[in-house]
């Protein structure tokens, strides 16, 4: 008899058991998938196929409930794929490959950390806040107050939450780097985690470097296979041999901020 080979990746169809519209174009889906919830760690993503689309859509996992066997994904409607994803409802099944990629490095729960989310980069920080609890300081940045999401959830885990909006319509007027710098000035933090647009990640990387604080960033890129075979989702990484083109799906999506080549 042949030995049964354990495969690292799986693809399956899973039921959607919850759906919410969090703000204008932002939706949350709760999916029942024991295979994924039992393995997933914060910062990983799932790769979702939709009828009529040749490419899967990578969406980060925003929370993981191992007891309920569920994961939650939160996404913004940006193109035809996410539009179709937003039309799925409770009772529909969803075609997922996952969990994929490398998650954030989790330190001891007693460590003090800062979690930074920008716009639709905020959701993965929900799983991180749930892990670190009140040792987490959560900074979220949005364009304006209509885009603000997940603040009630963050407050359930930690009293230390900060909202920034570009136009000042809610919270601090300005960018996430303002409260970040205030915090780093005041006390020691063991790690900063960030997910959001590239200019924000770059600014966060600069500030954390100045304060000599370790920082991990979650990068985004258009993907093909999602597992490192097709080589389309590039990210430039500094190595001892110069700049190397790594891949967000397999080498990331989480990278050490000091390794990322931010210019170009």
């Amino acid at each position: 008899m042949k030995e049964r080979i354990e495969m690292k990746y799986t693809q399956g169809f899973y039921p959607i058991i919850g759906k919410e519209n969090l703000s204008r174009d932002i939706f949350s889906l709760t999916i029942c998938c024991h295979e994924i919830s039992s393995l997933a760690v914060p910062g990983q993503f799932v790769h979702i196929a939709l009828p009529g689309h040749s490419l899967r859509r990578p969406i980060s996992i925003s929370s993981i409930d191992r007891e309920a066997h569920t994961i939650r994904i939160i996404f913004a409607v940006k193109g035809t794929g996410t539009k179709d994803l937003s039309c799925l409802n409770v009772g529909n099944t969803i075609d997922i490959v996952g969990p994929l990629g490398n998650g954030f490095t989790l330190l001891g729960k007693d460590k003090k950390v800062i979690l930074i989310g920008g716009g639709i980069g905020t959701p993965p920080m929900a799983a991180m806040a749930s892990y670190y609890g009140e040792n987490a300081h959560v900074i979220s940045g949005f364009r304006d107050k209509t885009m603000v999401i997940l603040q009630d959830e963050f407050k359930r885990y930690t009293p230390n939450t900060y909202v920034c909006t570009e136009d000042g319509s809610e919270g601090i007027k300005g960018f996430v780097t303002m409260p970040l710098e205030e915090l780093l000035k005041k006390e020691h933090f063991d790690m900063v985690y960030a997910c959001g647009p590239i200019p924000m990640l770059k600014a966060v990387a600069q500030v954390t470097e100045r304060y000599d604080t370790p920082c991990e960033v979650s990068m985004e890129q258009h993907m093909g296979c999602g597992i490192g075979a097709c080589l389309v989702c590039t990210c430039k990484i500094k190595t001892e041999h110069g700049i190397d083109f790594r891949h967000v799906c397999k080498n990331g999506p989480v990278f050490d901020a000091r390794e990322v080549e931010w210019n170009g």
């Binding site: 040749s54 258009h222 097709c230 080589l231 389309v232 989702c233 590039t234 700049i243 083109f245």
Partner: peptide, 19 residues
């Protein structure tokens, strides 16, 4: 090292690919 930047995009029933 291959092409810079974005290397894939979807089209109706297909995709464009430039690695």
């Amino acid at each position: 090292n291959g092409s810079e930047g974005k290397r894939i995009t979807e089209t109706p029933s297909g995709l464009l690919f430039s690695v």
